[in-house]
Amino acid sequence: MNPNDYLSAALLITGAVFFLAGTLGLLRFPDVYTRLHALTKADNVGLGLMVVGLAVQAESWSVVGKLLLIWWLVLIAGASVAHLIASGALQRGIRMWKP
């Protein structure tokens, strides 16, 4: 393994930890709004780290470009869908959890 592979592995494993956190939040958080927080933010960072981790190993610039394109599209989709779900939930009168 060369140094690049170690860097790539570290980034991929850290990314996986964020995906785990997103899923854990989805299971542990009490209502739809807090669960959306966990999903959008943790998965965004998890995917970002995986994209960088894979880009380190990429053989050409077009592969790096494709990976960044995927991240960007997921970012937009995640943020706008989270907003739509939250606004739909509020309009249907789904109460937010309070401690």
Binding site: L36, K41, I76, H83, A86
Partner: peptide, 15 residues
Amino acid sequence: VNTVSLLPGTLSAVL
């Protein structure tokens, strides 16, 4: 609105 959902601790609900 889209950026707010990705900042720490905030989620855009309704505009």
